[in-house]
Each structure stands twice: as structure tokens, then as C-alpha cells.
Design a protein around this nucleic acid. Structure first.
Lengths: 214, 214
DNA sequence: GGTGTCAGCTTAACGACGTTAGGTTTGCCA
DNA sequence: TGGCAAACCTAACGTCGTTAAGCTGACACC
């Protein structure tokens, strides 16, 4: 005699408890559910703990066994999601003909990834205390492929394609530009009036020309 | 016989009701209180309606006679605050020697103003639905002095200092760059590693050089 | 096979917040 | 001097994040 018909669609209806050492499996399930709800509702304020729990099939306090609070949950969700940014940019850069072209591909891919995942981008790069006590060389920069960007710039400097600048400064400047585009595109409706692609190409072109100078 | 000693410090203790046609006066007082709390707590989520009411000396429902909801209140507070941006930039530009220098002053002033009022900047230019159904030529652009920026660029084009570009495109690009700096400076601790002034000058210099080209 | 233990949850509830329905006071005009 | 509407209050609802305290079932051990 079945106490409950378990042939139904999985989640709503009590989840079976994890095995002894498998407590961390729930953590991943919570992240999955949060990710889905974040995508569905497009706003982390609209994602509430109780909804997440309903999807997973647990009760609210169980969340706090794996995450300190809601902010930590949302943050972890976005960080996990953005680990794929590096791969995404890497794939976009694969067909680049030279370091200069590579840099442009990098910028285009970054902006595209950000715009395709606006809420995650907002939380990671536009929220208040996103990376409160992170050390200067924090993992956020790695998450957004900053090391690869610096490497790209360094190759350009060595090739003599751009003047003798500090690669870190140049890379930070480039990141700032593409972030500016991404950030405004996410937040401001009807931005830019002139068309996003046109603006991005204008910015990349202008910036590259400026870097090539003295 | 006094029901309550009204010689105390004004706010906590019932506010006297406004005159017949003066209901809008309360609106301004609510905005003042919200502004102060926003500055004090540095986070619009930490500013709650009840605290605002306590400062003003009213009860929560009175707020809803003047603002649709909390978001509208916060939004109105920031918009009112940012009306001074245009003046601030204008003052910074007053001593400029030529249109090119003026443009740099404009950029520096914009970044400075944003960083000095981070929470307001975040709400106005980095929040989700900040300007939901605004028409393309919305008032937000005016608030940030976009018209003056376009004018500045137009003068540069006419003077032959930069190539024959679309002034609106160039202005949008410049706005994007300074917004990128401001936005990251507000959100990311330890940004930029190379120093904020150095980065801003690098970006402005690079961009200007790029604009001067073909 | 029984039994103790502890990871892995649950039940129940607290306190704060945004918001609303409905009442009450007060200035002003006829 | 009434009446009316603007201006505000009282009281409460529902939701949310979060916590204290208890249950339960998988596993190690005898």
C-alpha cells in the first residue's frame, strides 16, 4: 500500500531524504531551482524562499543548512551561472584571426552574455554588497575572464599593435567600456537610440584607435 | 491643559495637519525624509516606510496619498536629487578652455557626482525597471545632461576636432564610458586596481584620441 | 537483529515589512 | 452654521526572511 502516489511529476510532494554523506546534493538542487525561478521571474526580489522550497520539495529552514541567508543563495546561484562566461568568451574567440580581432570578439561576447543573462549580470556586477570583503585580486575578475583579457592585451603590446601601456590598466579600461554598454543595455529601456551593435562597434573601434596612438 | 508637550524637538510627536490646498507640502517632507534616510543607510532596501513616517511625523497610509508605492517614492527621491546633476556638471565645465577640455571636465564631473551619491545613482541608472515605459527621448537623458553633452560633441564636430561622426552616437558612447567607470566604482570594491583617476584619464584620453582619427 | 547516534530534515512560530479598508478630524465655503 | 471634502489616522491583513526546537530514518556498532 503506497502512502502517496509517487508516479506523479516529481517535485511537489515530499522529496526523499538524502543519504548520509549526500547532504550537499540538496545544495545543488536548491541552486537549480533558484536559477530556474530567477530566469522565470527576472528579478531576485520576486524569487522567494518558499517558492524555491516548493520546487525542490523541502521546507524553508532546510535552505539555511546550506546558505547563510537569501542573499548568499542568490549570489551563489549567479556565481555558478557565470562560471560559464569564461567558456562562452573562449568559444567566441576561437575563430579570431589576430590578437586585435580577438579583443573585439571578446568584447562582443561579453556584452552578449551579459544581455542574455541580465538578472545574473546585475547581481554579480551591479549590486551593492556583491563582493563585500573580497581581496583586491578577487575571484570575480577571474569569473569574468579578466586574466585572459590581460593576456590578450599583453600580446597586443608585445606585437607593437598598441602603445606601451600598462596591460592591467588597458584591460581594466576595456572591461569598463564593455561593462558600460552591458550595464546600460540592461537597465535603460530604448538604450541606445542608435542601435546596440552600432554603438558597440563605434566604441570598440574608437577605443582601439585610441590605444594604437601614442 | 496641554494634551502633549509640543515644545520638544519637532518631528516625533504628531505633525500638524496641512492646510486645505497644501497637501503637496507633505509630499516634499516625505521626500526630504526619504532622502535623509537613504543617505544615512545607503541602501533603499534598508529604508522602510515606517521609518520615513516616524521622521515626518505621520502614519504609513499617508504616504500612499502621494506615492503609488515604495518604488515610486524611492524613484521620486532619486530623480529630485539628480536634477542637480546638470547644474553640477555645468559648474564644473564653466572654466573649460575649449570644447575638448570641456568634454573632459564633463566626464570627470559626471563620475564624481555619481560616486558621491552612489545609492541614488544605482537606483536611477542601474536598477531594473527604473524607467519602465519611458519614451525613447525620455527625461532620464535630460536629467543626466545628455542634451548638453550632444551640444558639446556637435561643437567639436563643427570645429573639426573630431571626425564626421553622428553626435548622438558619439555622445552615447561617451556617456557609456563614464557610466562604466561610475557603475563599477560603485559596485566593485577595490576597483580599479590601478586607481580611479588614472583609469578615468586613460579612458578619456584613449577615447578622445580615437575620436580624432578617421 | 536490535540499538544508539547524528546528519538531514520538519513543524511552528516570530517579527518586520508593504499595503489596504474604512473611519475620523479639520479647515473652508455656502 | 451647517455640510462637505481634503487630509490624515486606526487597525489589520498577508507575505516574507529567519529561527528555535523537535522529529526521523540511515548507518555503525554490538
Amino acid at each position: 500500500m503506497h502512502p502517496v502516489d509517487e508516479t506523479m511529476t516529481a517535485p511537489p510532494g515530499r522529496r526523499q531524504r538524502a543519504r548520509r554523506g549526500q547532504g550537499d546534493r540538496l545544495r545543488e538542487e536548491i541552486l537549480d531551482a533558484t536559477s530556474a525561478l530567477l530566469l522565470e521571474r527576472g528579478d531576485h526580489q520576486a524569487v522567494d524562499i518558499r517558492s524555491v522550497c516548493q520546487v525542490v520539495g523541502i521546507t524553508p529552514p532546510a535552505v539555511y543548512l546550506h546558505f547563510a541567508d537569501k542573499a548568499a543563495l542568490i549570489q551563489a546561484t549567479c556565481e555558478r551561472h557565470f562560471r560559464s562566461l569564461d567558456d562562452f568568451v573562449g568559444a567566441a574567440v576561437a575563430g579570431a584571426t589576430d590578437p586585435m580581432d580577438e579583443l573585439r570578439c571578446r568584447g562582443r561576447a561579453y556584452v552578449r552574455f551579459g544581455i542574455e543573462h541580465p538578472e545574473q549580470y546585475r547581481i554579480l556586477f551591479m549590486s551593492r554588497q556583491a563582493h563585500g570583503k573580497e581581496p583586491p585580486g578577487g575571484e570575480l575578475l577571474e569569473a569574468c575572464g579578466f586574466a585572459a583579457l590581460v593576456d590578450n592585451v599583453t600580446r597586443l603590446v608585445e606585437a607593437g599593435a598598441i602603445g606601451h601601456h600598462d596591460p592591467v590598466l588597458v584591460a581594466t579600461g576595456l572591461w569598463t567600456v564593455v561593462h558600460g554598454v552591458t550595464s546600460l543595455a540592461i537597465s535603460i529601456p530604448h538604450y541606445p537610440v542608435t542601435g546596440l551593435d552600432a554603438l558597440l562597434e563605434h566604441l570598440l573601434g574608437t577605443h582601439m584607435r585610441g590605444l594604437a596612438g601614442p
